[in-house]
């Protein structure tokens, strides 16, 4: 899938906004939202938050996890751990990109947060590359990837699955040929050339 499609899926996440207008509840297909009360926080899907923000109809409230100390901790934890740590949000990158892109003035320490999130992403991507390398070298055809977010997984497509497909094909070809050569050498002594 294209990264913009992952972003599209991430846009369904619920975030909190503070509207600057009042309005009744709105009944969308994906659920009902509102009522909108000027100055009072409320929840809406991310796509709607960004849209209202672009129309200058709201401020976006920074999600709980989007906070410098918290992110520093996550970053340290990510550095310390051999494995991938659980991210505060399945679409952290999408959410950060969209919120910081559309409403960086609403988020305290926006530029600092941007840098830390980018660092976390880089640490995780380098870990991902290392584990992919290990997986390929061990000739594995199965891997477990807990806590990787969709965007991260998508970034190694099609490379990883394609490489694994290719490896499997090679293994199947070499296994197909090895027994045959073994057979011919053992059977040549006894004079039969039966292939099983």
């Amino acid at each position: 899938m294209d990264p913009y499609e992952i972003e599209f899926i991430g846009e369904n996440r619920i975030v909190s906004i503070i509207p600057n207008f009042s309005y009744d509840k709105i009944y969308l297909i994906c659920g009902e939202f509102g009522p909108f009360r000027a100055g009072l926080p409320m929840n809406v899907p991310l796509w709607l938050a960004v849209m209202l923000k672009q129309k200058q109809k709201c401020r976006i409230v920074a999600p709980d996890w989007m906070e410098v100390d918290n992110l520093e901790n996550i970053k340290e934890e990510e550095k310390r751990s051999r494995f991938f740590t659980k991210m505060p949000n399945e679409h952290y990158m999408v959410e950060a990109k969209l919120i910081l892109g559309a409403a960086s003035e609403d988020i305290p320490n926006a530029s600092e947060i941007k840098t830390i999130i980018k660092d976390i992403w880089d640490i995780r991507m380098s870990k991902l590359r290392t584990s992919m390398d290990a997986l390929m070298k061990s000739g594995g055809s199965y891997g477990r990837l807990d806590h990787l977010t969709m965007m991260e997984i998508n970034s190694v497509k099609p490379l990883l699955p394609a490489a694994m497909d290719e490896l499997l094909r090679i293994q199947m070809m070499s296994k197909k040929t090895t027994p045959a050569t073994l057979n011919s050498s053992t059977f040549s002594q006894s004079g039969t050339s039966q292939n099983t």
């Binding site: 055809s141 199965y142 891997g143 477990r144 990837l145 990787l148 997984i153 694994m164 293994q171 296994k175």
Partner: peptide, 22 residues
């Protein structure tokens, strides 16, 4: 996870919420 030649079948569990490539 069947091995193609049947000698090294591996069995795994998928726990709720876990992620895999296979």
């Amino acid at each position: 996870l069947e091995d193609h030649f049947g000698d090294q079948d591996e069995e795994i569990d998928l726990e709720e919420g876990s992620q895999h490539i296979l």
